[in-house]
Amino acid sequence: MRINPDPYPDILSSVEQTQQQIYTDEQQIASGQSVNVPSDNPAAAAVLVQNADQTSQADQFQRSIGSVQGEIQSADSTLNSVVESLQQAISLGVEGANGTVNAEDRQAIITQLQGIQSQLLNLANLTYQGNYVFAGTATQTVPYVLNPSSSSGVTYQGNSGTNSVTLGNHFSLQTNLPGSQLFSGSPSNVFQSIQDLINGLEGGDATIISSAVSEVSNALNYVDGQRVFYGNALNQLTSQQTYLSSETTELAQQANTAGGADLTAVITNLTASQTSLQAALEAVGQTGQIDLFSFLR
């Protein structure tokens, strides 16, 4: 049988193929990725698009957690100060209820309580990064202003709105409590209780003073109880941070499985390709050096 007398096109095409393979392998080694263009592995390329999106989302959730964490911590520690102020008010109230206290001392106690009152006003008007923390969603409005005509001495100008922020694919966290719930609503009103205590001390009736002290005490317990909300929120944020960082690790593993280059295999392939390229090139060098003409003299 007659064979193809011109083997060069075949050899060259095989050389080209091997060079293409070497190029692909080198690209994979350089990028560390087996999917450098979508056609390298269309399904993996689609997975990698979603993976990149989820990875970026997880990073964003971490940043958002950082942002809300600051505000919640600030609210929590402010409530702690409120509780401490109320404890102080209770001690002052108990002292003032004592029959042995003279008018001058009582006036001193009243002055101290008025100091606590304005301190509480400051605490309730806490701002964090330019926002009033306890104004509901009316964060650009001072929540509490002095109002002598109000029985509690203050007026709440905020609203009862709350915000929730998405901080995970299936995790959303309420980030605030409005002042109307914390300080000036039912069942317990911080400002009313302090004002009642001041009024009681001014009147000097021991029974009224005692009743006002227990009102303050109720307010303290109530506010202290509300702190649980912030404590829980901080705990949830911490565990979400842990979850997100493990999710990020998982996503990185998934990305590597879908599109990472198997370097050991690639390098083995590359070596094999280089050997076969060398062999093909040597074949080109040797083919056709000899034909019958060489022997005719």
Binding site: V49, A52, S56, R63, S64, V68, T166
Partner: peptide, 21 residues
């Protein structure tokens, strides 16, 4: 486009933490 979509929604998520900023 994929990265741009992700970045857009990331920026919205960040805004959600402080909507008046």
């Amino acid at each position: 486009i994929g990265t741009a979509i992700t970045n857009f929604f990331d920026s919205v998520n960040q805004l959600s933490t402080n909507p008046s900023d």
